[in-house]
Amino acid sequence: MKNFSLRKLLLGCATLVLFILVWKLVTDAKLISPIFFPGPERTYAALEKGLSGGALLTQTLETVQRMLLGWLLASFVGVFLGSLVGISKRARAFIAPTLELLRPLPASAMIPIAIAFLGFSDNMVLVVIAFGALWPMLLATIHGFAAMEPRLYEVSAVLGLSRGQVIWKLALPSAMPMILASLRLGLTISLILAVVGEMLASRAGLGQSILAASRSFRSADLFAGIVILGAVGLVGSRLLSFGERRLLRWQAVNR
């Protein structure tokens, strides 16, 4: 088994190196004008310069902070409201259809409405992120509660648990796999909306910085920004799946 994964690692790295080499060859041969498409060395140079004292580091921190704040807000509100709606069958019947109706609405379509209310401000971007990332968590919590083993509800009735105790001790743990999966989706949405919000509202951050770089044809800076955004997305989703595995270990044992 170890042998096999080593082979996979070697093959993977070789392809990655090949990929970068092709990228270098294409740009060195000037198949695409270097104004639009920088080679790997120029991207790396821009990355190094930006991170070691350039503006790139602070912009990255701005974007990550925005993304995390919006995501946390959405997570708390989503799981809280989802629990309130999900725990009662009657509330589900009345409220869930409306939520399902609103779900396909693209979160970015809310940006103009948010601008109309809050102007081009940091709060506007935050509200848009929180609103967009809210849906997966809200609906996952409701569905998770609805899908809970009915006998657990009966047990809770026999034990005379209060509604709050039912949510905390039974419903939330049993809905946990769905909620955790939705948290990961929510983080992806948060990053996307943070970038879009920064582009539109000209708030400091990577989104604004790559748009400005593209407008002034600084393609190396643009690619450096994209590399960082990819890294942020990668690290975020890896951390969450790691946490997911740790938190759900009890379930894997049970099965």
Binding site: T15, M199, L222, V232, L234
Partner: peptide
């Protein structure tokens, strides 16, 4: 096996970041 690593590295790039490019 060969492409998995490259794809995993390219996949998390948010699509909106490609708008300026």
């Amino acid at each position: 096996d060969a492409l998995d690593l490259t794809i995993e590295l390219l996949r998390p790039i948010p699509v909106v970041a490609l708008i300026p490019v």
